[in-house]
Structure formats: C-alpha cells, structure tokens
C-alpha cells in the first residue's frame, strides 16, 4: 500500500526499516540524535545512533572501519560540499579496500549528503558535485528525485556491499509523493522512464526531473512528445534504457543542475555520442548550471540554474524548431 509522505520522511523510513531488519546497520553523523526524543535513538539506542563532532574525515573513516568489521554504517554528512573535507576517506580508502585486498573484505557504507540547496545558500552550500564521485571506481552514486525512489534507493544502498554516495536534493526535502509501505527496494542501475514520448529523449536527475517533466508538458501542448528519463543512479548507469530511447527518438537533451565542464551530464553525452551515434539526428544538447559558483542574490541565482524554459528551448533547438546556438 502506498501513501503520500514527504521525500525526507521516505529516506528516514528506509533507514529505520533497515535498522530494524538488520542489527549491523548503524547511523551516525553531525547534529544527529541530539535529543533523547529522536525517533532513531528511541528505537535503536545510542550505541547504534550517534552524534559526531564536525570531523568529516574521522566520521567517514570510522564508518569504513566499522564496515570492515562487519557493520553497515550510514553516515549523515549534511552538505555534499562538506565531503570535500574528507575526500581522501571517500576516494582513497572506502572504495579501495575490496579491490586492494583482492576481494577479501568489503566496505558497505552509505554516505548520505544533501546537495543543490539553491535558495540563497550561496557559494559553499549549493554545489551539485556528484560527478566527482561518479568517476571513482568502486563507489556507487544514487540521486533520488522523488519520495518513493528516495526510500527504495536508500534501502538498496544500505544493503549494497560497496560504498554508496546517496545524494538527496535539499529542495525536494518536503516534496510529497506516494511511497509504498514496508520493505521497498529500488534496484541500482535501473533508470525510470517518467514520461514516454517519441520525439526527443530528455535525461534529468534529482530536482531537474520535475523541471524536465514540466517542460515536457509545455512541449506536449506544442505537439512535441518528450521522453523523460531519470537514471536514478549515476553509477551504475542504465545506459541501455537511455540508448533504447535515443534509438527511438534520435535526439537527446541532458539536464543537470551541476556546472557543465567535466560533469556527469558530459559523461552521459559522451556515452550516447559513442554508442548511439548511428541513431542521432541532431547533436546532443545539454541544459546545465552555468560555469559559475552559485551566486547569493536571487536573480543571479536563478540565472545560473537550469529551468523549464531553458529545457523546453533546448528541446525545440534539437528538433530544428529554434535557431541552433553556435
């Protein structure tokens, strides 16, 4: 049975259910469980639910150690950009153990971090830096765009035997949606076709999925049918679904909140350009954040971010119905 709950509640529900199901699941991080009233503390106690100091390096390192010792820690890291403080643990330690030990050990950790809080949070709290984790062999990256996926991907992340970066979008926090009750898993590497259409393939992640769907509605009123695909996980990436769609449509528009250079969006573009080359009727175009740190002032912030109009405009462009920019 599904019922409507917010995105954040769906994430918490998944963690709660997994902790109830498996005693080895731990949950810790900054500002977590600071009162005895905390629902996780009440249910699982302070041994499994811990608050930590502002020590990202030690938090993640400790999680890796606990994972090597047989536990499944979920680390709450608040802002994706704060993971930069601890990148050595995220990149050089966590995802390396399995490989460097010849498969003898595993590191089942979940690094949970919010991103993209573009609501005047300015230059250091708004970054969409998931691409930095996508190109790391050994790491997996999940980017839920709606409450049900948030729940299902979190549960899968906790059960995965590899380190997983789980990036939830801050502007979706209170977004309601239908979420199945009880055990619910969304497999990694399985894209979600959110809308079917035969004219153009639009691939979007996170907060951008909603914007792409809204743009698709506008386009539909003009007679353009866009297929909107949410990959849900960037690594593993479900290229098959994307390519199948591109075979049908011959055109692709990629939407990514991050700045474009060396982004996850460019990665997907390169794959389509390579494997889908024979079907392409137009260049793959992208709608991404502009090449700038996110500014504080509202009009400038809106200017650097992708929105529905930019998406619709780009779709019209690849369909040859708008001038192609140089």
């Amino acid at each position: 049975m599904a019922r409507e709950i917010p995105y954040i509640a769906a994430i918490n529900e998944a963690i709660h259910l997994e902790m109830a199901r498996d005693d080895t699941v731990l949950y810790f991080g900054q500002n977590l469980a600071t009162t005895e009233n905390d629902e996780f503390v009440k249910a699982f106690g302070h041994d499994r639910v811990r608050v930590t100091p502002i020590s990202e390096t030690a938090e993640i390192g400790m999680a890796i150690g606990a994972a090597l010792a047989g536990y499944r820690p979920v680390v709450e890291l608040y802002m994706a950009e704060f993971m930069l403080v601890a990148m050595n643990q995220v990149v050089n330690e966590g995802p390396r153990f399995r490989y460097m030990s010849g498969g003898r050990v595993k590191v089942p950790i979940v690094l949970k971090a919010g991103y993209g809080f573009t609501a005047g949070w300015a230059g250091q709290h708004t970054g969409s830096i998931y691409n930095m984790f996508t190109g790391i062999p050994g790491l997996k990256v999940a980017l839920p765009a709606r409450p049900a996926d948030a729940k299902g991907l979190m549960a899968t992340a906790i059960r995965d035997d590899n380190p997983v970066c789980f990036f939830h979008h801050y502007l979706l926090t209170l977004e309601p949606g239908d979420v199945p009750e009880g055990e619910y898993l969304v497999p990694f590497g399985q894209a979600d076709i959110r809308r079917s259409g035969g004219d153009v393939t639009v691939v979007a992640t996170g907060w951008m999925v909603g914007k792409a769907l809204a743009a698709a509605e506008t386009l539909a009123s003009e007679g353009i049918e866009a297929e909107v695909i949410d990959p849900r996980t960037l690594n593993p990436l479900d290229l098959a679904t994307i390519l199948t769609s591109v075979e049908k449509t011959g055109r692709a528009v990629l939407v990514d909140q991050a700045t474009r250079r060396a982004s996850a969006s460019q990665m997907i573009a390169a794959e389509i350009a390579d494997l889908g080359f024979r079907w392409l009727k137009a260049p793959i175009k992208q709608v991404t954040g502009l090449e700038a740190t996110v500014p504080y002032s509202e009009p400038m912030e809106a200017y650097v971010l992708p929105d529905e109009e930019k998406i619709a405009g780009t779709v019209r462009q690849v369909l040859g119905e708008a001038p192609v920019a140089a």
Partner: peptide
C-alpha cells in the same frame, strides 16, 4: 568513465556533429 575524455567527446559532438563520420 568519468574521465575528461567525456568532456572532450561531448563538446566535439556538439561542435562538429554535422561533420562526424564515426563515433
């Protein structure tokens, strides 16, 4: 996967699409 070559490929396909004869 995730290397800078994807950036190069994505930019090249955009800027030279009509001349590309192979992936």
């Amino acid at each position: 996967l995730g290397g800078f070559g994807a950036e190069l490929a994505a930019q090249i396909q955009d800027a030279a699409f009509d001349r590309l004869e192979a992936p």
